[in-house]
Amino acid sequence: MNTLNKTLTCTVAALTFATALYASETDVLVINEEITIPTSAPAPEGSPLDKVISGWSFRKHETQALQMDDFDNPSFIFVDKASDQWTKVEGTEGKSCASCHEDVEAFKGLRTVLPRWNEAKSELYSMENYINDCRTERMGAEPWKWSKGKMTAMTALISLQSRGLPMSVKTDGPVEPAMKLGKELYYTRVGQLDMACSNCHEDNYGVMIRADHLSQGQINGFPTYRLKNSKLNSTHARFKGCMKNIRAKPFGQGSAEFKALELYVASRGNGLSVESPAVRN
């Protein structure tokens, strides 16, 4: 452990008392005064955690409140845009999303099982991969960039159909090598600050890192609207942000590394309800 890291650990410990000022795990997430979403769940088998807790529980009440009403949640302006996009014909084949999939409600449950193995492509697939395959292979349209506005809006609309359902990605079979890689990345210290995902999100969740309340780093609310940049953020964009914070060179968005990490992190939150599109700081 280097000096920087020791200093960080001391700071974290010194600020632990401040945790009490923050929202607690006993807060209940009710959306639109009708949909109750559990924000914790028993940890999945083999987990190093006692239980899995949504990032919502680590936020202050004012931030939590923004997710408790679909009008107050600014994500929904992008969900609206994606709904318009859904029926928009693009590309050489004269098709829109709706040409094949009709109602987006058909995707209920999809968010809970992604990323997953795509047999035909012999590759781990995130939702963004499926969307771009549709665009390039079926519609004859340009693919979207992994974390740009149209993509995050569409993943928000599709993920919303699974809101409230428990995450349940498969971790065995053909995805085993990806799980192994994801786990390795999660626990490997990198960057000038020499930190791994686990240093914050497993060893120190619930305590303060400077002015931030560390969460378990669960991804059940992604894509998520962040107050920081006032837009929807993809899981990979968030990974990139974390890596930059620890002064590491981030992997590419959509890379095999980030997809493997996405799968592994998703598996650590199996059982936690989908909150997408959530609101975080």
């Binding site: 914050c200 303060m208 890192i209 400077r210 002015a211 931030d212 920081k228 974390c242 914070n245 700081n281």
Partner: peptide, 8 residues
Amino acid sequence: VTIGGCGG
């Protein structure tokens, strides 16, 4: 107004 470690 807090300037965060990571979230901010």
